[in-house]
């Protein structure tokens, strides 16, 4: 069986919104500890991994299941969530459906057909990074939107003193500098000066659900995928994006 109750459907909507920009379908691996899923996007440029510990739920009861879901349908349903709605996710093993229930003054139940997906064997590789930057999520997100004015890729740079988001168009360019002591930076640990280029569309998709108050952990190295980590609604999200080589 699987049944989980979350306090805010609206908050969880942000998670589904973000994940569904990168993936078409997902296989949730459910067990008594919580829910996990990870997958690469179809082009293998990006990886999404999420972990929902049982503590993120008000009520949680589960044994082991793999629940394959079409994310477009899941997103559409979650878009119907209202601000006071509780979210109940429950597996109907007989009908082979995932019930998504919004509970408020009444109950609205959407039943999604399960997809026959097997859990991805793809896991976030255990890469050691020389540099770790913790930055306020909205500051990083805004810098990416600024960069998007002039280019379709962005250069992320880090040295001992600052983290830089740079974009270079044919004619125009953009630079956002976050000095170590600026209010946007929570911490800046740099062992190796780094400069790497990444696709902006992917990066902006990865931070889609971020709002003010959220903090993003950025792992950066030379010629390495960038790794982003943050939490939304108690859900731990990890993203990996392969670099662009000049």
């Amino acid at each position: 069986m699987f049944r989980g109750v979350m306090e805010s459907a609206k908050e969880f909507k942000k998670v589904v919104d973000t994940v569904s920009t990168l993936l078409d379908e997902i296989c949730f691996e459910v067990d008594e500890e919580g829910i996990k899923a990870s997958a690469m996007d179809p082009s293998h440029v990006a990886l999404v991994s999420l972990e929902i510990p049982r503590l993120a739920f008000e009520e949680y009861e589960a044994d082991s299941h793999e629940i394959g879901i079409d994310l477009e349908a899941f997103k559409k349903v979650m878009n119907r969530a209202k601000s006071k709605d509780k979210l109940i996710l429950e597996l109907d093993e007989e009908k082979n459906k995932l019930n998504i229930i919004f509970e408020n003054t009444g109950k609205r139940k959407f039943s999604l057909a399960l997809l026959d997906l097997s859990a991805s064997s793809v896991k976030v590789p255990d890469i050691e990074y020389p540099n770790v930057i913790m930055i306020k999520g909205d500051a990083f997100k805004e810098a990416l939107k600024d960069a998007d004015l002039f280019s379709d890729y962005v250069i992320l740079k880090a040295d001992e003193d600052k983290f830089v988001v740079h974009a270079k168009g044919d004619l125009n360019d953009f630079n956002a500098e976050f000095e170590k002591d600026s209010s946007a930076i929570i911490s800046l640990e740099v062992k190796e000066e780094t400069k790497s280029a990444f696709n902006l569309d992917y990066l902006m998709d990865m931070v889609k659900g971020v709002s003010s108050g959220d903090i993003i952990k950025i792992y950066l190295g030379n010629d390495m995928p960038v790794k982003l980590e943050y939490s939304l609604a108690g859900v731990n999200l990890t993203f990996l994006l392969a670099p662009r080589i000049e």
């Binding site: 590789p125 995928p225 990996l240 392969a242 662009r244 080589i245």
Partner: peptide, 12 residues
């Protein structure tokens, strides 16, 4: 212009 790598290279 640059070349977009895939993650496959990093999963070996």
């Amino acid at each position: 212009k640059g070349k977009q790598l895939t993650l496959d290279a990093f999963f070996k």
